[in-house]
Design a protein around this nucleic acid. Structure first.
Length: 799
DNA sequence: ATGGCTCGCTGGATAGACGG
DNA sequence: CCGTCTATCCAGCGAGCCAT
């Protein structure tokens, strides 16, 4: 290599201050890698969840926990002669988690099959990138693409200590450094495990027809290419030596290859063999995932466009070498690293010196003669701990990422995931978690080292299950040991929560019982106490809570304390001072303190915790899970109109008729501030397509009107009501909400427009200037939340 | 340091998806 | 329905890599 060549190369430069390395204009840091990892992980998770529309199956986390991560299942001895990962851990263990069609007839719908195959293909690529980047020592593309779980070249292994997957890569480009170890981290292992053990058998089943028929095409494709090169090579030689025309017809090689291809065509099992051998198969096109596809994925991460560095495989490899040299190695303890790190990249000494500016013996002095397995493992763990999956919280938006709970020392479990699933099974037939975020949070409530747990999630997420299941599981495992507490903001929610808990099979009491005369006797069988926030501030209750041990028998201890809809603690504090009294409890003594809410950034949560005097040591051991991938209803257009009072009835009636005339299947909700207006409108549009509820009706009649409206087949398409009906109405096809001259708080407004689940629009008609009570002043942090919403939402009400 | 051989990048072509 | 955008494929080449 001459001087000019060297000068022309892009060298990696290091910025120690920022902890990053640069290649030309592109910058790589550990934080950047962790963002990529995180985003890939979330995307995979999203796809996995999307599949649940058609299937039931065990999620990666559950399946891993119960099968591969379960140390009660012994791994078979590694035997160099037996190939196939399923010899080490038989596939049958995963069978209970296999895919099942929700509606078996879907299996024959080709649109659904196409969608599913696309999703699977996407996941294949995401997983590929995850695997590649998580090890810290990225493979060459060729090495990655041929990773396999079976056959003579199988290179997936399980570390029996950590129960994590790793790859041993021998690649003939560089025989000198064979058997490099690539250790996956936990999230990647989970996903890969699920992919190989649960998704793959399903893929094979889904594609069985194609595997039977067009079966060997992917092998043939590969083979043909390889052979064609040989042929061309030979043809050239022939031409060079004696000038004969190269005749494909009579050529020996062509003959052999065609015979082989023919053989593959007839051999039905070839496609199956590939599916059982290779991991990264493009099931849409029946071939291995190509390099450009893979680079395409790398270029799309992190998700956030402005944060991308547009690095491809080679740039990343180069930068990673720089990171190891200047950032990671110095952070390792001692002066030596256990292995010659550059070896992990599969390069020679010389290449590093020249191209990467790394001198292995100078920059990575080793302490051992040979690179050994444990050393590789240690380095991979070091890298992974430096690029953890972390919460990336942007200041102004709710754009959110799921926190991957870090691995911690296990403490003794009161109950485990089995118990959660069992509890779920008692409540619902074929119970399974709706999302992995739900599953993760729920198991954290039951069993993790965190003391304070916070969950931000939308209404349909299944938030209440995240604490009901752990309560149930604890009740089964430790009967009578724990008393749990649930605090909710409103009286109506209290009743609803009571019902939910009772239906789940828990014995429920109210906080008021704590101050009863015969509290001790009454409370003996109670599992959980429900009360409004302010009831915990009541002097008598607060006192009783403080001497819990006296009120309850000494055998019982404090279980989970749940703040449901915790954002209200902040939103309403300015006008309900009594909330301030919910404090001064000995929070440390609870098994867990859990906050669940629709919207509450972590910094606000912190302030709430300070106000409730939640001890620092509890706060420090916290887990904040943000399952809101997108602020709900963010893109819904809002139209605010000032209308003269005298016109309002007529305008509203016209709007209803217009709506009924224009749309066919969707539904609309009209909220009225005054019952008189509603009645007047009702008189104008009194037909079977319009329903109406008001406070005078008894609850049964109300329910039946709701049910009628929620039923997609019924003619009822518009419902009129006061703002009270915003609780309890849940209909997926609502696409229009009209708010007619209502006095409302921001919370009520959000609740009303929350009726729209997907696309839709909001119309607000007002007659007075002060249509929204100004309970929240401009300096209130709530306004900062609202400012993150689109303008139309903020400028609600006349300015 | 040199030369040969691969790997991975490039950019145009094409098919397919998307959105108005 | 059509133009636009996006993903993928393909072929060719230059940089990267390795052996000597």
């Amino acid at each position: 290599m001459n001087e000019e060549d060297i000068a022309a190369r892009n060298f990696v430069t290091t910025d120690l201050e920022k902890g990053s390395v640069s290649l030309g204009t592109k910058t790589l840091s550990l934080n950047f890698i962790s963002r990529i990892k995180n985003d890939l992980h979330i995307e995979y998770d999203t796809c996995q969840t999307a599949l649940r529309e058609w299937f039931t199956f065990g999620s990666p986390a559950t399946a891993y926990m119960i099968v591969l991560g379960n140390k009660n299942i012994e791994l078979m001895q590694e035997d160099p002669m037996t190939n196939g990962i399923f010899k080490i851990l038989p596939q049958c263990h995963a069978a209970p988690h296999y895919f099942k069609w929700r509606r078996p007839k879907d299996a024959s719908v080709s649109e659904i099959r196409t969608k599913v195959i696309k999703l699977i293909n996407k996941m294949t690529k995401l997983l590929m990138a995850s695997v590649w980047i998580s090890t810290g020592f990225p493979m060459r593309y060729t090495e990655l693409s041929i990773l396999s779980v079976g056959g003579t070249s199988r290179n997936l292994y399980v570390d029996s200590d950590t129960r994590l997957f790793y790859f041993r890569v021998t690649y003939n480009k560089n025989r000198k450094f064979d058997n490099r170890i690539f250790m996956m981290d936990l999230p990647v292992t989970r996903n890969l495990f699920w992919f190989v053990y649960i998704l793959r058998p399903f893929e094979i089943e889904l594609l069985s027809q194609m595997l039977d028929v067009t079966d060997s095409s992917m092998l043939i494709g590969h083979f043909t290419n390889a052979v064609r090169q040989e042929i061309e090579h030979e043809a050239e030689e022939l031409l060079a030596t004696d000038g004969d025309e190269f005749n494909e017809e009579t050529n020996q090689l062509v003959e052999t290859s065609e015979a082989l291809i023919e053989e593959l065509r007839t051999k039905q099992a070839a496609g199956l063999a590939v599916m059982c051998t290779c991991i990264f198969v493009d099931v849409e096109r029946f071939k291995l995932v190509t390099l450009s596809t893979f680079n395409g994925i790398l270029l799309k991460y992190p998700k956030k466009r402005s944060a991308r560095e547009n690095m491809k495989i080679s740039g990343l490899r180069q930068c990673l070498a720089g990171l190891w040299k200047d950032i990671i190695r110095p952070s390792l303890e001692g002066d030596v690293v256990p292995v010659r790190t550059p070896a992990l990249f599969g390069h020679s000494k010389q290449t590093h010196e020249v191209v990467y500016g790394v001198n292995p013996s100078r920059d990575f002095p080793t302490n051992g003669s040979f690179d050994d397995y444990y050393a590789y493992k240690k380095l991979a763990q070091e890298f992974q701990s430096l690029t953890q999956y972390t919460l990336v919280q942007t200041k102004r938006t709710f754009e959110a990422l799921v926190v991957e709970p870090q691995e911690r020392q296990c403490h003794e479990a009161e109950a485990g995931i089995y118990d959660l699933l069992k509890a779920g099974g008692e409540l619902f037939e074929n119970f399974e978690f709706k999302s992995s975020a739900q599953e993760r949070f729920t198991s954290a409530v039951l069993n993790s080292n965190e003391r304070l747990l916070a969950l931000q999630a939308i209404t349909a997420f299944g938030r209440s299950l995240t604490f009901i299941l752990p309560m149930l599981a604890l009740k089964r495992k430790q009967r009578g040991k724990y008393v749990h507490f649930v605090a909710v903001p409103y009286e109506s929610l209290k009743m609803a929560t009571r019902t939910k808990l009772e239906n789940a099979g828990l014995v429920v009491g109210e906080t008021g019982m704590l101050t009863d005369l015969h509290a001790e006797a009454n409370l003996s069988g109670v599992d959980v106490l429900v009360g409004c926030f302010d009831s915990y501030g009541d002097a008598g209750v607060a006192d009783a809570m403080k001497r819990c041990e006296k009120v309850f028998s000494t055998r019982r201890s404090r279980g989970i304390f749940v703040f449901d809809e915790a954002h209200v603690l902040w939103l309403e504090k300015s006008f309900r001072d009594i909330f301030h009294s919910v404090k001064g409890l000995n929070w440390k003594s609870f098994l867990k303190v859990a906050f669940v809410f629709a919207k509450l950034p972590e910094w606000l949560l912190e302030r709430i915790c300070q106000e409730r005097r939640i001890e620092n040591e509890v706060w420090e051991k916290r887990l904040y899970v943000d399952a809101v991938k997108k602020a709900p209803n963010q893109n819904i257009p809002v139209d605010v109109e000032n209308v003269r009072k005298i016109q309002i009835v007529e305008r509203t009636a016209a709007m209803i008729l217009n709506y009924l005339g224009n749309s066919t299947a969707s539904k609309a909700v009209f909220f009225f501030g005054a019952k008189a207006t509603m009645d007047a409108v009702r008189r104008r549009v009194n037909n079977h397509e319009v329903g109406m509820v008001h406070a005078d009706l008894d609850s049964e009649t109300k329910r039946s009107i709701f049910d009628d409206f929620e039923n997609p087949d019924s003619p009822a398409r518009v419902i009129l009501g006061t703002k009270l009906i915003s609780n309890g109405l849940d209909c997926a096809s609502v696409n229009c909400v009209c708010v007619i001259d209502c006095n409302m708080t921001i919370i009520e407004y959000l609740q009303m427009i929350g009726r729209i689940r997907g696309e839709g629009y909001v119309k607000v008609m007002v007659t007075r200037a002060a249509s929204m009570r100004r309970e929240i002043d401009e300096d209130d942090p709530l306004m900062r939340i609202l400012r993150a919403l689109p303008d139309s939402r903020r400028s609600l009400g006349p300015s």
